[in-house]
């Protein structure tokens, strides 16, 4: 396992044990158990509706799980207000639909949370934002509104927005699914660079090339649970489970 230990303590980055979640009478997660170490890049794949999004949304409590436990950075996800706030601050998330704030400029999008949550001064936050924009490759777009950017640029702004909170874990929910093919690469490049810098990442994606190249581990989801997991080589060349084989044959 290539995961580097960058966390502060001895606890792993994320621990999930028997996580279950219902929407009304529909069970979206039926017992997810896995552990993710610091610096690990985990790619989650699986058919649509299998609960991938629900799983990573439970990790930063956009959905609350109903049974089992999730421990992020040594803090258990309970109903504790303080833990939830702290975890949200430390876990960044990038959405399929970007979800940039359309009424704010790119700069304001990125500095909003640092100013209001981390209490940084505006000049401070803005200089950091400029560095981040530089890092995701669009330093010249700072004063535009999201509506004036292309999809790929928007998604890179969204990544910069998450990074501005200095998260230690990043969640990606199908970050390239809403993009035109020629823009996918620019976003994946940013994510690769991020992974190389040692960020702990969970990525839901259908980009198998990305999974092969970058992932340390692949989780295959079906019917709300992890059906199979393993290193990319193992997973793509020698899948064990029938469901996995079927899925791979359809997608590759």
């Amino acid at each position: 396992m290539a995961a580097k230990q960058t966390g502060n303590g001895s606890t792993p980055a994320i621990v999930c044990e028997g996580v279950k979640k219902w929407f009304g009478d529909f069970q979206a997660l039926s017992g997810v158990t896995t552990t993710i170490g610091w610096g690990e890049v985990v790619v989650v794949i699986g058919p649509s509706g299998s609960g991938k999004s629900t799983f990573i949304r439970c990790i930063n409590r956009l959905e609350s799980h109903q049974a089992g436990r999730i421990v992020v950075d040594g803090r258990e996800m309970t109903n504790d207000l303080r833990n939830i706030d702290a975890i949200r601050r430390d876990v960044g998330m990038v959405f399929q639909q970007f979800n940039l704030f359309p009424h704010l400029t790119v700069m304001e999008n990125i500095t909003l949370a640092p100013i209001w949550v981390r209490n940084r001064t505006r000049t401070d936050a803005e200089s950091q934002a400029r560095q981040l924009l530089e890092r995701v490759g669009i330093p010249e777009q700072a004063d535009k509104y999201p509506g004036q950017l292309s999809g790929g640029q928007q998604q890179r702004v969204a990544i910069a927005r998450s990074l501005a909170m200095n998260p230690r874990i990043m969640l990606f929910d199908e970050p390239t699914s809403a993009l035109d093919p020629e823009m996918i690469k620019e976003v994946l490049d940013v994510m690769k660079e991020l992974a190389e810098s040692g960020m702990t990442m969970i990525v839901v994606t259908h980009e198998m090339g990305f999974a092969r190249e970058v992932a340390h581990r692949v989780l295959f989801f079906d019917y709300g649970t992890v059906v199979e997991e393993g290193t990319p080589e193992h997973f793509f060349t020698n899948p064990q489970h029938d469901r996995t084989k079927l899925f791979l044959s359809q997608i590759l």
């Binding site: 956009l62 639909q97 940039l100 209001w116 927005r161 998450s162």
Partner: peptide
């Protein structure tokens, strides 16, 4: 879009913020 609220929460803003 519901995503706006979720994105705001995900970057750490409180409910009121």
């Amino acid at each position: 879009n519901k995503g706006q609220y979720e994105a705001a929460r995900a970057v750490g803003l409180s409910v009121v913020q």
